[in-house]
């Protein structure tokens, strides 16, 4: 191995987050002896599916310089609407129609966000705060949402289908690896392709770096932003659909409140909160870390009511590190303001 490789590696945020994950894994293993068992790893991966997909959407929005907090409400609404319609028509077919329907709902709701943010140039955070409230109001008020204990057969059989089954040799506990994990992989590949191999991805990073420069460089800022929110809406809606399928019931409110956990994961992975920088590897590693913390507190014997506190600490720590990095980077570049001041 050459030294250069390691030098580059140690400069990268992803390397440290990876170290933290390993250290935490070892700590949990030492404490409970249950971490590095096949079934626990599979459990973690299947718990990663929905937050992972949300994280991909949140990641793209943060790279573009915005923040989206409406995706749990968007996912809940499109999931609930799809399930309700299909139940009303007594749908008996496979999983493709529900998926396409939720994608369509997601695209429409995402376009709503997109128009407000791209056309009217309103602050993304406040817009999505408003739309998440509107989506929730439509779901709970207009659709009068209740917990649906039964969902169409195609959905539930998709949600419970297993790729393979992992067994813990000692305790005999088994965990199924859901087929839905493939959906996460596919979405990840698509997002990777768009971000790294198309002009659209370049444009997204350019807008996040500096919208004005991106516009001058010839990017169609409006189109890029609009399509971004449509795409994120579709990814989120798909994640909502998969969550309902995996739980084999449609619970309208249990996804709400996930937004901060997802954003924290993305930011922990080294994505600049001010936009323009960040990698998919970091985004996924950060999300894995958050999912690990959520799932492993029980293994560590920490009471569940400490969860919110740990989450808050993680969010602030993650954002603090990210913010300090941004400040340091701009200092290194020697921004004009600082030079004049000194």
């Amino acid at each position: 191995m050459n030294n250069r490789f390691f030098k580059d590696l140690t400069k990268r945020n992803e390397f440290y987050i990876f170290l933290v994950i390993i250290v935490m894994g070892v700590l949990i293993e030492l404490r409970s002896g249950q971490f590095f068992t096949p079934n626990n790893i599979v459990d973690l991966l299947s718990a990663l599916i929905v937050p992972g997909m949300f994280a991909l959407g949140a990641f793209m929005v943060i790279v573009s310089g915005g923040v989206d907090v409406s995706f749990p409400a968007l996912a809940s609404l499109s999931m609930y609407a799809t399930t309700r319609i299909l139940l009303d028509v007594n749908y008996q077919g496979g999983v493709w129609l529900p998926i396409l329907m939720s994608l369509a709902f997601g695209a429409i709701l995402g376009a709503f966000n997109g128009v407000l943010i791209a056309t009217f140039k309103l602050p993304p955070m406040i817009v999505t705060l408003g739309t998440s409230s509107v989506f929730r109001g439509i779901m709970q008020g207009v659709l009068n949402s209740k917990q649906l204990a039964v969902i169409p057969k195609g959905m539930s059989s998709f949600g419970t289908a297993a790729l393979f089954v992992a067994e813990n040799p000692q305790s005999g506990l088994t965990s199924r690896m859901p087929v839905a994990f493939l959906a996460l992989v596919i979405v990840l590949i698509i997002v990777y392709f768009f971000l790294n191999h198309t002009m659209y991805g370049r444009g997204l990073y350019a807008i996040g770096g500096n919208e004005v420069s991106a516009h001058r460089a010839g990017f169609n800022v409006w189109l890029i932003k609009f399509l971004l929110y449509v795409g994120v809406g579709m990814i989120s809606a798909l994640a909502g659909m998969i969550r309902a399928s995996m739980m084999t019931q449609a619970h309208p409110t249990n996804m709400l409140g996930m937004e901060m956990m997802v954003i924290a994961g993305v930011v922990l992975g080294g994505t600049a909160i001010t936009g323009g920088a960040g990698t998919l590897t970091g985004c996924m590693l950060g999300t894995i870390l958050i999912v690990m913390v959520e799932n492993s507190l029980i293994l560590l014997g920490v009471p569940t009511f400490w969860q919110s506190f740990f989450l808050g600490v993680l969010i602030i720590a993650g954002m603090g590190i990210s913010a300090l990095q941004v400040t340091r980077a701009s200092k290194a570049k020697g921004s004009v303001v600082r030079e004049v001041k000194q």
């Binding site: 923040v67 907090v69 955070m125 901060m260 954003i263 924290a264 930011v267 909160i273 001010t274 009471p303 009511f305 400490w306 969860q307 919110s308 506190f309 740990f310 989450l311 808050g312 600490v313 969010i315 602030i316 954002m319 603090g320 990210s322 913010a323 300090l324 941004v326 400040t327």
Partner: peptide, 27 residues
Amino acid sequence: KIKIPPILATLGSYELFRGIAIIITEG
């Protein structure tokens, strides 16, 4: 001082304060 965008900083601290409140009352 740390220069976290206010929206995210206060959402994070909201979670933190809520967490402490839940710990005090055990929910």
